[in-house]
């Protein structure tokens, strides 16, 4: 029993640290697309956390919404946000219209 508890505790610790690290990387990411993909991964890990907290109903809602819907929403919004003449240089985030003003 003791070993089982320790194993579960190790799982919880890894999951918790991964969640915090992922949130930090999401918010500190210089690139928007990377931030969104990291956020999707964050949602996946959140579902695992709900499972460990004995809340499968919440996990179901999070899986349906966090894994699918939010990611699609964010990616669609990002695609409309990207300037039409975006080059492949990652740091050309500012749109051209700003120069005209």
């Amino acid at each position: 029993m003791e070993a089982l508890t320790q194993l579960q505790l190790a799982f919880d610790a890894v999951l918790g640290l991964a969640l915090l690290w992922l949130a930090w990387q999401t918010l500190a990411s210089p690139e928007l697309f990377r931030a969104i993909v990291l956020f999707i991964a964050f949602g996946l890990l959140m579902a695992l956390a709900w499972v460990r907290l004995e809340a499968p109903d919440v996990a179901l809602a999070e899986a349906a919404i966090g894994a699918g819907l939010t990611g699609a929403l964010l990616l669609t919004a990002l695609s409309r946000l990207e300037p039409k003449n975006k080059s492949k240089i990652p740091h050309s985030k500012k749109p051209e219209s700003e120069v005209d003003e």
């Binding site: 894994a67 699609a72 695609s79 990207e82």
Partner: peptide, 25 residues
Amino acid sequence: DVALVFALLAVVAAVAFVRRAWVAD
């Protein structure tokens, strides 16, 4: 059931990526 929903909906984000975010690029 949660795993089932995951398996169903993990595709949505990937397809949204390929059809929207990437095509615009």
